[in-house]
Design a protein around this nucleic acid. Structure first.
Lengths: 145, 145
DNA sequence: CACAATTGATTTCCTTACCAACGAACAAGT
DNA sequence: ACTTGTTCGTTGGTAAGGAAATCAATTGTG
């Protein structure tokens, strides 16, 4: 808490810096665990989102992940190379693409999701329930607006 | 809160995803405001850290920002090109580098810091004091361990 | 002293992220 | 039908983040 006082020059007084630092840390934690499945955290988010709604539109996928289309394009490129997802044409709109999980991905995803839930559990255990609930509430509010 | 329940498949149930999403949002907010000074959020963190301790060692800078050395190398490259920082040899260790702010940076940094404090203020105002205090406490705990 | 091990910083490679510009396809209006 | 405008996805550019390999300099050990 020392570095948060207002007349300090330290970057650690700024929200954005704090968030970025923690995010990177948690990201590395996920990354090191997901690597045994040969995927990255971002690829895992895409897998989860497509698992939730197989065959959804590219643009809806991007929107649901709050991700720029061009970022998703390159992630899907790699995931297609890894045989995790498949892009198919949308019969209703020739500009649009539909995204599907491959059989390979369908077989792996629930195990991976289980692992990720375990990682979350380990993180949560470091805090009190209320503390963490408030933390998540604030995050939720952030991403809504 | 809907998406956080445990039997959902949505990526938004995972801490790492939530953090990344919020972080990106806040990052974009900072980015759009800092761009008037021609710098990025990460460059701003470096400026702040060097402003706090001018002439610190490269490795200490990287450590204090919890940043990989290779990342810092490329950020400093750009910042040197922008005439914001300067690398000098460490007289005590020829492997080591010392990092200094340029005059140009010294003149701009306090104004930029003031802007950033304003951005933080605007964010804070969206939450209750306790709520946000807990949020920051959790972030703090995260980055300590 | 000499040699091995470690440290400091850079380079290269890969992934993510975003913006701006683009071309193709669709929609709306006249 | 034709033109105008919009939407969809990709491409190309830049920045950041990190892992691994590398080189030079320093430290440790025999």
């Amino acid at each position: 808490m020392v570095a948060s006082n207002d007349n300090s020059r330290s970057p650690s007084k700024y929200i954005c810096y704090k968030l970025s630092r923690v995010m990177r840390k948690v990201h590395r934690y996920y990354e090191s665990n997901l690597s045994q499945y040969g995927i990255t955290p971002s690829q895992f988010y895409v897998l989860s989102a497509v698992w939730e709604r197989d065959g959804l539109k590219f643009k809806d996928l991007a929107k649901s992940l709050d991700m720029d289309g061009s970022t998703l394009t390159s992630i899907l490129d790699r995931m297609e190379r890894l045989d995790l997802v498949e892009r198919r044409n949308d019969p209703e709109d020739r500009r649009s693409l539909l995204v599907f999980l491959t059989e390979k991905a369908k077989q792996k995803i629930s195990e991976i999701a289980h692992l990720a839930e375990g990682l979350d559990q380990e993180i949560k255990e470091r805090f009190s329930d209320e503390e963490f609930a408030t933390f998540e509430k604030v995050l939720e509010k952030f991403s809504q607006e």
